[in-house]
Design a protein around this nucleic acid. Structure first.
Lengths: 350, 350
DNA sequence: CTGAAAGCGCTTACAG
DNA sequence: CTGAAAGCGCTTACAG
């Protein structure tokens, strides 16, 4: 009998549901899972009842009974940078396509153990880390995961050697940029905000030094770096402040490489406000290839992190590890970045 | 006995754990939950074993046994706008502080039912919607939630009248802006991209018209709106294209109100490139008060959505509803926006 | 102070 | 074709 539409029946369990359709729980369960042959009439009744009640079996009970949790814990440093958000978004999409649910949590420094315990209590099938984390803390979490046989993957942070990692090849990215600028005649490079303790920045500096050296230049003479205490590195002001320092330095570098797009845009605008012209008087390269690159004239050339590709690889690794945890560890995969030229670089001037 | 550190014991259930410490499951369970008095020595053994094994009770089993799921489903339109990301981030933080876990999912248009079913199968205690959704689809999902007695809350989308809502008072926001500009002597207002079918935009237009009328102006004469087909409204180009249209129109408005910060920045830069000066020749107001407001000179004045306040109210409503679902429906709460002046508005020129 | 038993919502052999 | 029984990992009366 169909439920009276005016007062819908609320069904909370297969037991209630079975009573509602007048069959046993076993039969209902088989119907729900497509096992065994039901009498067509029973099948119809069950279908109609699902429509009428909107009953959904309790996922927790299913999991207890042996169904995989189909959950992956995702630990984020924060939601503050567009790049981090793009990564988690692409990852969640990819996991969903693979039938996995991403549980996204921000990891509070010092409280990561609690979050990981929560993930473990939910019996997640793997854990992903996105962003910068304190190395010792991250290492401790990975040790715990290992002990419980839970696979992990670190995206774009390379501080922990034992960790399975997929990350942008930042060394290569910077070497590519330097080589390209060198081909345009640039010999003096200004580095904007490329310092600090992050492994990601260290990798980029390695790439720059290596390329400069291989091109036959003296790093000490050809590289000039300014940094500055600033609350946030992704503010335009930061770039402006650094640009001001370079304005006072002679001989000024002809090409600038910034820690990120915000800094590059801030510096570019500051240079323009000081009367310099891009790319006639200087070249500028950002990092991350964000929306704001389109904001300057000319638009900002930048390094794209290839986030879609990174997410694709991450999902592939995770699904493989869930099926059968890697025996050879750690796994390190590098993603080749892509330089996007929009006109803010050009031949070195006089 | 402590586990040998070289080969840690992997414990997956209270049964295994009880065997490991040599007590019954009941006793272990009581210890874990702080019920009943254990013999100090038993307690010690259990504590040590937890340290040694890192055992965490299965959350699914706990929930089956009656524990609340402590989960709230959060449906997002996407992760593409900084504002939406800021909202979900603040909400997740607030929910966490309230002991609730936010399950964040992007709702694919047309596939929202599947996601909601998933949330229901996990027995979430409430569902939140953040962003723009197709009205009929959202209404259908809310009907289903109602039927199952699951509370919901819609943040910042006001298309569905029956929905519980907390949203920015956009009407008031725009009335405030117009009034402020009017006080600076402006009588002709240019609207950049304020059109389309979104209820949020409609509310903003209502506020603008109401204020203009109350100030004794003729809306038809004082308001000039341009819009343009553009792939994405949060690109700077969009603002530049609109600004170009206004440049060709005489008499030109003296104050501009943009649909968002990106459009405002794009327009402001375009005007500046055309030789106009801010705020001498025109005033410009953005919306959302994002980071990019700091990118122009002068920096962009904008309307702040007061996201922290919105999240605070949302968490309060949700926790109250979870404790006891509202009997009076729908609930509508408005958040008062805040105008942030950074210098891109000034007295109307000649 | 501690353990055996029942039951939460499911599914899967196992009988009919 | 369908149902009764056992068991997944827990906790909570209920006995001792």
């Amino acid at each position: 009998m169909p439920a009276r539409p005016t007062q819908p029946v609320l069904i909370r369990s297969t037991a209630e549901f079975a009573r509602y359709v007048g069959l046993s729980r076993s039969t209902v369960s088989r119907a729900l899972n497509g096992h065994g042959d039901l009498r067509p009439k029973s099948m119809e009744r069950i279908q109609a009842a699902i429509q009428a009640t909107g009953f959904t079996p309790n996922a927790h009970a299913l999991h207890l009974r042996g169904r995989r949790s189909a959950m992956v814990g995702v630990c984020m440093e924060n939601f503050l940078t567009p790049t981090a958000v793009a990564k988690v978004s692409a990852l969640q999409q990819g996991l969903r396509d693979a039938g996995l649910v991403a549980l996204i949590e921000v990891l509070e420094p010092g409280a990561s153990q609690k979050t990981l315990e929560h993930f473990r209590s939910l019996r997640v099938e793997a854990v992903v880390f996105i962003g910068h984390f304190e190395t010792a803390e991250l290492a401790a979490r990975i040790t715990e995961l290992d002990r419980h046989g839970t696979p992990h993957l670190v995206i774009d942070s390379v501080g922990v050697r034992r960790a399975n990692t997929v990350s942008l090849d930042r060394t290569q990215a910077m070497a590519d940029v330097v080589t390209r600028l060198h081909a345009l005649g640039h010999r003096r490079f200004g580095l904007l905000g490329l310092s600090g303790n992050f492994q990601t920045v260290a990798d980029r500096l390695t790439g720059i030094h290596r390329a400069v050296t291989e091109l036959g230049l003296d790093p000490a003479a050809s590289l000039l770096a300014y940094d500055h205490l600033h609350a946030r590195r992704d503010h335009f002001e930061y770039g402006a402040v650094l640009a001001q320092e370079f304005l006072q330095h002679a001989p000024r570098p002809t090409a600038f490489i910034a820690v990120n797009d915000e800094t590059a845009v801030g510096a570019l605008l500051h240079f323009q406000a000081a009367g310099l012209s891009v790319p006639r008087d200087f070249s500028m390269v950002g990092f991350n290839n964000q929306n704001i690159c389109l904001m300057t004239r000319p638009a900002l050339s930048s390094v794209d992190q290839q986030i879609a590709e990174t997410a694709r690889i991450a999902v592939e690794i995770l699904t493989r590890q869930i099926a059968r945890p890697f025996t050879t560890r750690p796994l390190h995969r590098l993603v080749r970045p892509k330089f996007v030229d929009r006109g803010s670089i050009g031949p070195a001037g006089a």
